[in-house]
């Protein structure tokens, strides 16, 4: 891991109308997979929203390395029904490549998004964000809708991306997944 972190949070308190999470301090380095675990409603997604500028920072600060390129996978993909966009186009849109996709998705690159299952769509969005040109990737509940094979493939893909030098921040309520894939874990309480 490089000495200079990609992202550093110092005593951060963030939320929307009122604080939802914090105070919290953490660092994310290049090549690291950092987990943020905790029960539903503890502010995990709000933390990511604060990092990407869509939640309010009440106190503390977020420091990003100059020129840092962030990629964010949202917990819920946007409504895509009725739009004639296929899986290959979605991956190409973020600049990600299709090489290395699991076979059960690689064979469906020509399918429209609204013809894919929930798990296939989830993995596709994950892939498009994970493999996009970025220095740090933020993943919000990446195992949602995935079957065990999908989760196993995701674990391998995360490790490979980290080995390439990206810093990964993984938010999940799935303690087993976080324990299996993350090099460090920050646990959030359920009060806020």
């Amino acid at each position: 891991m490089n000495a200079l972190p990609l992202l550093e949070i110092e005593a951060l308190t963030a939320g929307y109308a009122r604080p939802v999470v914090g105070p919290l301090s953490m660092r994310l380095g290049a090549g690291e997979i950092l987990g943020v675990a905790g029960p539903n409603g503890c502010g995990k997604s709000t933390l990511l929203a604060a990092l990407t500028g869509s939640a309010r920072v009440f106190s503390g600060r977020v420091c990003k390395r100059a020129g840092l390129r962030l990629s964010l996978q949202q917990q819920n993909p946007p409504e895509i029904g009725g739009v004639p966009f296929n899986a290959g186009e979605l991956i190409a849109l973020t600049g990600a490549g299709a090489g290395g996709l699991p076979p059960w998705l690689a064979s469906r690159l020509g399918e429209r998004l609204d013809r894919l299952s929930g798990g296939q769509l989830q993995f596709l969005y994950l892939w498009a964000c994970l493999q996009a040109p970025a220095d740090a990737v933020l993943l919000d509940e990446p195992t949602n809708n995935l079957d065990p094979d999908g989760v196993a493939f995701l674990e391998g893909a995360l490790r490979r991306r980290a080995a390439e030098g990206a810093g990964l921040l993984v938010v999940s309520h799935d303690a087993r997944f976080v324990g299996a894939v993350c090099s460090r874990t920050v646990r959030l309480g359920g009060s806020g």
Partner: peptide, 10 residues
């Protein structure tokens, strides 16, 4: 449309 936070995150 497909990645509403793509630009904001950058």
């Amino acid at each position: 449309h497909f990645f509403p936070d793509f630009y904001r995150a950058r």
